[in-house]
Every structure is written in C-alpha cells, then in structure tokens.
Write a protein that binds this DNA or RNA. Structure first.
Lengths: 185, 185
DNA sequence: AAGTCCGGTCAACAATGTTGACTCCCCGCC
DNA sequence: GGCGGGGAGTCAACATTGTTGACCGGACTT
C-alpha cells in the first residue's frame, strides 16, 4: 500500500519526541541521540528521515495560535483582549517561543522567528486597523506583545512575574489600546 | 618583575579575541579553537586561563551603558531621551545583547541577561520615579525598552527597521512617557 | 645550584552531528 | 513462484566540539 505503515509511525515518533525535547531544552541542549532514544530508534534514522537536526527543528517548532477568532472583539476592547491572551498564554507555546528565540542565532531559525512574529502578531492586528499609519501602529503593538513575552519568559523579570495577573492585563491592555486606537483626532 | 608580561598579554589577547568573536557569532557558533587561533595561542590555554568556554563568555560579555548621565534630563523628557538612546544604540552593544539573548538557554547566561536587564533598564528608571506603583511602572518601561531591542534586533522587523528614525523615536518616546508619568493625577 | 611554580604545547578523551556500507523485508513484475 | 528493487533499520566510522592530563621549559626563590 502507499501508506508506509511502520515508517510513518517511526517518523511520527521521532517528530513528537523531538518536539517535546526541543520545547523543554531548546535546540543546542537536545542531542540527536536523545531524540532517537526517546523515539526508540537509531540516531542515523533521525537524520535520514529529516535531513538534519536543524531541519527537524524547523519542522517541529512552529508557533500558531488560533487567535483569529480570539481577537474577534470590538476594537475598543482589543487591547485588553490581546493582553489577556498573552498573559494567559503558556504551556507549549512558551517552550516553542523560547526555543525559537534561543535558536535564532542560526539564520534559518531567525527567519522562522521573523515569520512567526509577522503571522502571529503583526498580521492579525494590521487587519483590524485602518488609516495611513495602520502598518506602523500594528508593528508597534506587535513589538509590545513580543516585548511582554520577552520580559516574562526570556529575561524572566521577577517583578512582572509576581505581579497580579489582572493588574498586568489591565496595564498592558491600556498600553495596547493606546497604540491601536490613538486618543483624539 | 611581578607583572607576568607575556601571560597577561596572552590572557588579554584571548579575552579580546573571544569578546569580538562572541559578539559577532554568538556563543554556540564560536569555537574554542577559533578563539585560540585568533589570539595566536593554543585551545588548551584558553580553557586553562578561564575555566570553561561558558565562563569565558560570561567574563567577556557584559553590557554596560553609562546611561546614568545620559538619562539626566527633566522627567517630562525622559521618554524621548530613552527612546533616542535605544534607537541610536548599536555597534558592540547589539552584538552583546544578541549573544546574551541567544545564549540564555544556559542558566548562567540567562541569569546574566536578567541582571543586565535589571541594572541597565529597571534600576535607572526606578530611581527617577516615585509613588506607590513606581516599581511596576519602571518594570513596564524596561519591558518596553527590551521589547524594542527584541523587535529590532532579535526578530528584525523590517517594517520598524525601515521606519524613519525620528518618527520611531517620537512614537516610542510617547509610549515611554505614558508609562513613566501617567497622564492625570 | 636546586627546587618550585607557571605559562605553553601536544596528544588524547568523550560527546556531538552526519555519512556510508550493509542487512532485511515487502512489493510489483517476468 | 521466483526475483529484483527500493525503502526502513542497524552498525561502524568520520570530523569537529569542549576539556583534560602529561610533559616541557624558563624564571624566581631559597
């Protein structure tokens, strides 16, 4: 048959083991032999299926949130909604984000991070805005969003982490709102 | 004499070669043998002088801006000044910042990044503020600052990079100002 | 003068990503 | 039915990485 039964299973095992390890330990700290062991197979097979460790990384680490519906909220509440979404984000998204940021020394991973930033933050916000400076405002809001994740996850600012969630949401929500729908005029 | 002439020179050579290479290529992409070659010495000596590659990295990569005087400006202009400072920042600071961010998968480097963030952004701003929520506002402004560098350097948002510098400064300056000296009350 | 330390060199180690040779087995074709 | 070919799997090897230990030589102390 066309379905390569065992092969697909093995490939899938490698894929999911790699995804888990990359999320938990990042690119450089996880070894091909670890992935192979976790998938119950041979290191050579890992490379054979995906062409290299880096390509395997790129194939497993994509960060997609279905925020299209989640951002479907009146424009005047978009700031709060976005802040809420970001603050409550976590779990696997955190691991993928950190893996991308840490790995972005490699050109291909950096490009992936750039695409992710664009499709995750810039594009959905851009779609909701209008006016001559809509693009700039969307990009600034996206920079704010990335900066929040950066402060919380990459540097791990204890002060922000310890802060009351609802206060953080309301403060950052106001910031977003100010950029998205500038006051007056 | 007590000055170990050649030794100090060699140590210095290793130090500066390592600093340059780490800045340009980051932690994982620069090898001990590269550093040794650039310093005109032996890989083993690199490890002997500094205990390990990671310790050498930590010894060479610290990011300090003498921003104490540079932020000495009336409180109502602090936002613009900070934005100006960040946007015009570059050169070696960029390399060190990126190396720290990319390397922060390693716990020690992450701690260094956290300290840097605290001493470079949070502390100087905190010193200028007062009121019950001064700490929170300082940390949010610091997150904004880090987020700007993140967007420009780590992800490399083309839209922001292409933007007119003075417009970027004025927009981000207003953002900073809003966080530092909230309107009304 | 002998001894002791310190900077330097060389060879080796284990671990890494990756490749090639080889086996095995199942599928379609004569 | 036999058989040839291709793909999955295994094993050993390679070059490169960070790091260590053995050895060497010269300078400073006693």
């Amino acid at each position: 048959m066309l379905q390569t039964g065992s092969s697909t299973t093995t490939r899938e095992a490698i894929h999911s083991a790699a995804a888990r390890l990359f999320r938990n330990q990042g690119f450089s700290r996880t070894t091909v032999r670890q992935i192979a062991a976790a998938a119950g197979t041979d290191p050579a097979l890992v490379i054979r299926h995906f062409k290299s460790k880096e390509l395997l990384f790129l194939e497993t680490m994509h960060l997609t949130i279905d925020d299209e519906p989640l951002l479907d909220v009146p424009l005047e509440h978009l700031g709060d909604r976005l802040a809420e979404l970001l603050v409550e984000l976590g779990g696997s998204a955190r691991g993928v984000f950190l893996a991308l940021v840490h790995g972005s020394g490699e050109p291909q991973i950096r490009e992936r991070l750039r695409d992710t930033h664009e499709q995750l933050f810039v594009a959905p916000l851009r779609r909701r805005l209008s006016g001559p400076d809509a693009d700039v405002r969307a990009r600034m809001a996206a920079a704010l969003a990335g900066g929040l994740l950066y402060a919380l996850w990459v540097v791990g600012d204890e002060g922000l982490l310890r802060m009351d969630r609802t206060e953080l949401v309301s403060r950052y929500g106001a910031l977003f709102q100010g950029v998205l729908t500038p006051r007056s005029r």
